[in-house]
Design a protein around this nucleic acid. Structure first.
Length: 600
RNA sequence: GGGGUGGUAGCUCAAUUGGUUAGAGUACCGGCUUGUCACGCCGGUGGUUGCGGGUUCGAUUCCCGUCCGCCUCGCCA
């Protein structure tokens, strides 16, 4: 077997005159006639042109060269020389070529379903790419992503190790805690009728590691949530999971800010300035989102006070609504003329768009060149024109979009509309890295259906230090010590200071409707651990896949995972999930409730 | 679970709105080509139009069902 002396990306003019062996895949094959064949040989480092001079070569080399086709895996040995023809400036190795004296064919490739050319990738259906992932991953762009992901992992270990964090593994087979996301379940063979759950996160284990005196823990771990995927969400994903003892919220946020600043410098050479903080209520009121994209304007204005004066029925009805002490409201977005014009077709489509988020519709009006209101609800606004313009600081040519409803619905719908408008008008600037901390989340949201409070973050999140009294007196107003890190409108990390006292933890469990019995059964080990001298602690978890997505400039999470799953949780390459034998089920003490599909 | 969208040659797409033998590029096969480099030129193989029904003289096209991919709402403590 020929052993390579260089990678395909390496050869330069300085190597000319050496005998070189390259290994790789035939990227292209260019037959020039009786005497001359070119091929580009590709490995993970790049491309190098191989030339076969068939007049001088021995017959078996000629035969081998003639038989080569795309994606055959070969080795070529020969003289590396400066190109006889013009150099190819598009290739790093474009000044040289390898004159084949010996060719070893490791393996031929049969007819290819897809070609691993970068320029083909966006055109090919993902279904096919996922089925033949081993070919898809041969693309230089995919190879690059895999290696960028590796660099992120390397930097992560280096940074946190440098901050005296210890990498500790936690179990994959744990028990189900039906709070939060749906668990993946695994039947136990040794305990008939019992089930393991796969972890949604190592949350409780890392807290217990703090009780265990580890002080600073991290883990790069797989987490599993049996929920429907999205473009930026997989059921099986990776987290950079962290926990620290003897810290308050700012201590954690400082360490984590340092991490992303270092990571962006390392990966992109970008200096990320001090990451600013925004309270949740500010984020919701100004951006209609708990993960605001601050790269562009279009902030939400609250015009509830004015809206009540204009006699527009929809506004009056919305303002009369009330939920959890919050009155209904009217939110307005001023789309400045300078940002571009919204067509009638666009504004018409926004009504259906906001209905997705349970809002009734969008009220539209526009300020004409002469300063009068025109179109939409102009006649209602005209009587309060001066106040209205002043409140919004609106100028001639501006379009005003308004959403009215319950506060939650109005801000959510207006926030989504804001993103939609920015996208439609291409108003999101490229090349910006807007990091942001969102803090002071409510501890609880009220679930009308279940008639109970539910933890907004998770039930181990501590209230802010000055908020403990509110836990009992006014849970709806109680603000937590949680914090999310947001990048360009995407949540890339979340965490909190945890409850480290049993009495507080029990209060929270009680508030979310867990009886003492439930709490003991599900989380008794945590309550017990907290009783044994638990230190104050808090932590964070980064979504690794999303970090890599941002760093690689893709908005498809499957691009940054070597073997991702589809929207229905399938792996198209190995055809999972799949059927199992009756014998296997018997061992697991599991009986079928549905007839299983015949194996494909 | 809901909404949207797509499925035609190995791959990417087309088919004049229901009408003759379903076309093109690419890949593949054959021939030509001694400086190409996403080589070029000539020729060729290749189709259960996702699957199952229905309407019709006739269905890629219309209808019903179903499967699969993608986007999205719900969901994601």
């Amino acid at each position: 077997m020929l052993k390579r002396t260089h990678t395909c990306g390496e050869p330069r003019a300085t190597h000319a005159g050496n005998t070189v062996t390259l290994c790789g895949w035939v990227n292209t094959y260019r037959d020039q006639g009786k005497g001359l064949v070119f091929l580009d040989l590709r490995d993970r480092d790049g491309l190098c042109q191989v030339v076969c001079d068939l007049e001088d070569a021995p017959p078996h080399v000629v035969a081998a060269a003639r038989s080569l086709r795309r994606e055959d895996c070969i080795a070529v040995k020969g003289l590396l020389r400066k190109r006889a023809g013009d150099p190819n400036l598009k290739l790093a190795t474009g000044e040289v070529e390898l004159l084949a004296a010996e060719i070893e064919v490791f393996n031929k490739a049969i007819d290819l379903p897809i070609l691993p050319d970068d320029h083909d990738a966006p055109k090919i259906n993902e279904e096919i790419r996922l089925k033949y992932r081993y070919l898809d991953l041969r693309r230089p762009s995919m190879q690059k992503i895999l290696r960028e992901r590796h660099r992120v992992l390397q930097y992560t270990r280096q940074y946190f190790s440098g901050q005296r964090f210890t990498e500790i593994e936690t179990p994959l087979l744990i028990k189900s805690t039906p709070e939060g996301a749906r668990d993946f379940l695994v039947p136990s063979r040794l305990h008939p009728g019992d089930w393991y759950a796969l972890p949604q996160s190592p949350q409780l284990f890392k807290q217990i590691l703090m009780v265990a005196g580890c002080e600073r823990y991290f883990q790069i771990c797989r987490c599993l949530r049996d929920e429907d995927p999205r473009a930026d969400r997989q059921a099986e994903f990776s987290q950079i999971d962290l926990e620290l003892s003897f810290v308050d919220r700012s201590d954690v946020m400082d360490v984590m800010s340092g991490f992303v600043q270092g990571l962006w410098k390392e990966m992109l050479g970008v200096d990320v300035p001090t990451i600013t903080r925004m309270t949740w209520i500010d984020a919701m009121n100004r951006f209609g989102s708990d993960k605001p994209d601050t790269r562009f304007g279009l902030e939400l204005h609250d015009i509830s006070a004015l809206a009540g004066k204009c006699g527009f029925k929809v506004f009056d009805e919305a303002l009369a609504k009330s939920r959890l002490g919050k009155s209904g409201c009217v939110k307005a977005i001023v789309v400045p003329a300078s940002m571009g014009q919204l067509t009638r077709k666009m504004t018409d489509s926004y009504a259906d768009f906001v209905k997705t988020f349970k809002a009734g519709g969008v009220a539209v009006t526009k300020i004409s060149a002469t300063g009068t209101f025109e179109t939409g609800i102009a006649k209602f606004v005209e009587p309060i024109a001066a106040e209205f313009k002043a409140a919004l600081n609106a100028q001639p040519g501006d379009t005003i979009l308004m959403v009215a409803d319950h506060w939650e619905i109005a801000v959510k719908a207006a926030g989504e509309l804001r993103l939609k408008v920015a996208d439609d008008l291409k108003a999101v600037p490229a090349g910006m890295w807007n990091f942001l901390w969102v803090i002071d989340f409510p501890m609880f949201d009220f679930d009308e259906e279940g008639n109970r409070w539910v933890a907004m973050h998770h039930p181990f999140t501590s209230p802010n230090p000055d908020q403990f009294d509110l836990l009992e007196s006014n849970p709806g107003a109680c603000v937590s010590a949680g914090y999310d890190m947001v990048l360009n409108g995407s949540e890339i990390a979340g965490g909190s200071i945890r409850i480290h006292r049993t009495d507080v933890q029990e209060k929270v469990f009680k508030l979310i409707g867990l009886t003492q019995e439930d709490a003991d059964r599900k989380f008794g080990f945590l309550l017990s651990a907290l009783r044994h001298g638990a230190p104050p602690h808090g932590g964070m978890a980064f979504g690794l896949d999303r970090l890599v997505m941002h760093l690689c400039g893709t908005n498809n999470i499957r691009d940054v995972i070597a073997f991702p799953k589809t929207q229905s949780g399938g792996d198209l390459m190995i055809d999972a999930p799949g059927p199992v034998d009756d014998e296997q089920l018997k061992e697991l003490h599991v009986r079928r409730a549905v007839t299983q599909k015949a194996p494909a």
